[in-house]
Each structure stands twice: as C-alpha cells, then as structure tokens.
C-alpha cells in the first residue's frame, strides 16, 4: 500500500454532540489532498485528531503504517507530520531565522547544520532577506510563510495546513498556491489542507473530501466533486466559488 495517511472510521463527540461522524479517507504519498466543508462541518476537529491535539472516540488514524491517533502532537510531529495553525503562532520575540532553526533542530543536533537548513528553507520561501527581523514585526502574509517555513524545517513527510489562505488577498493567495506547489513538487512533501478558499483548492488539490455536519458527503477529484449534486446543495450553493 502506498497510502501515506489513512483515516478509518474516525469519529469524535463532544458531550454527545457528534463533531466528526465515521470519516474515512486515504492520502497517497506525493499528492495534495483537500478537506472542505462549511463552517461547523468538523474540518478543524478532523485536523486536530490527525495532528494529535484531540484523540478520536472511535476509529484509527495511521501514518506510514503506524497508528498515530491518540498520540501527542509532538510525537506525531516527530514521526513526520508537521502542521500550521489557522491563526498563526510564530514565536514573536525571536528572529525569523531562529523561529525556523527551532523546527530544523527536530532532526538535527548540530547547531550549524540546523542553521544551514533553516536558511535553505527561508530562501525557498522568500524570507531569507527578512531572517533577522523579529517575527512579531512581519506582515500577515510573511507570518503565514514563516509558519510554513518552520513546519517545513522539521523535514515532514506530510504537511497539514489549517486554512493557510485565510486572510490573504487574491494576489497573496496565488503566491501561496505557487509556493505550496513547489513544496509538493520539489521537496516531495505530501500536503493535506483544510481550506475555505475554493480557488486555491481547485488549483492545488488532486483529491478532495467534502464534510457536512461531520459526515463525508463526497470524495474524489475536484472536478467531479464540484459537480456532485449533494455538494452543490449543501455547500457550494451557499457560497459562490
């Protein structure tokens, strides 16, 4: 099996309220996979279960054949799953470079090697010139890229992106799409993104999953999914693409 990540019958309840209801899907190595759905569809809950923030009530999540559901976020990251936060959380008082160095130190003990790697990643993400800035001094698009750089510095096999386009203007979105394509193609990182901005999803995703009220209603290639009647009525009908 070449599935990098497989989610099998995963469910999560909060005080009886079903947030995620028996969701299953697989992400193949090397692809870009998107999870979409209206607000409250359970996307973030699903994301948090993969990232180790929440433990599912039922079902299993396996990554490269190893069960990760129920593990802590740091353990999941050490196995090769890096994430970004929807509301970015850079280390504000540290420089841009030191932010990324911390990520690079996950699999490197040598300071010099970590710094080299951090600078490489910064160069890839157009942040090299700003490496001595304090993270708190960056603009939102820059902070989003810093967050991405920090996650990439941990050498992930799988990158989880939580609404990485949120708050970006269209031109900035296009730039981010380009960057993510490069990350996927050149660095060989598989990407799972949770996204609201359909334009970005259509441009990036090879496969997608649509959630509604915690349950999957459609799965497949983007061009097929957007023509699905259920998807159109429940989701796409409300928000223009």
């Amino acid at each position: 099996m070449s599935a990098l990540l497989s989610v099998v019958d995963v469910g999560k309840r909060f005080r009886g309220l079903i947030a995620v209801d028996r969701v299953s899907f697989t992400v193949e190595a090397g692809e870009i996979f998107a999870v979409i759905g209206p607000n409250g569809a359970g996307k973030t809950t699903l994301f948090n279960m993969i990232a180790g923030v929440l433990a599912p009530n039922e079902g299993t999540i396996t990554f490269r054949g190893e069960r990760i559901s129920g593990r802590t976020p740091d353990a999941v990251c050490r196995l090769g799953v890096a994430r970004t936060f929807q509301i970015v959380r850079p280390f504000p008082a540290l420089t841009v470079e030191d932010n990324v160095v911390i990520g690079a130190l996950l699999h490197r003990t040598e300071m010099a090697a970590a710094r080299r790697h951090a600078r490489d990643v910064l160069a890839t993400l157009d942040l090299f010139d700003k490496r001595d800035f304090r993270a708190s001094a960056l603009t939102l698009p820059d902070r989003k890229r810093l967050e991405l750089a920090r996650a990439l510095a941990t050498d992930p096999k799988l990158l989880l992106l939580d609404e990485v386009m949120a708050g970006l203007r269209p031109t900035e979105t296009d730039r981010m799409v380009e960057i993510l394509r490069g990350v996927n193609r050149d660095m060989g990182v598989t990407i799972l993104l949770i996204e609201h901005v359909m334009r970005a999803v259509m441009a990036l995703a090879g496969h997608m999953l649509v959630l509604h009220h915690g349950a999957p209603i459609a799965k497949g290639k983007p061009e097929d999914v957007v023509r699905d009647q259920k998807v159109i009525t429940s989701y796409l009908g409300q928000e223009s693409i």
Binding site: T72, F91, L106, R150
Partner: peptide, 15 residues
Amino acid sequence: LAIREDETAARALGI
C-alpha cells in the same frame, strides 16, 4: 525559547 514563547506551537514542532 520555543516553550517560553508559545507552548502549543513548540509542541507542534515536535518538542
């Protein structure tokens, strides 16, 4: 330093 600045983010970086 990562923990001082943001524990959740530190954890997400595998610390």
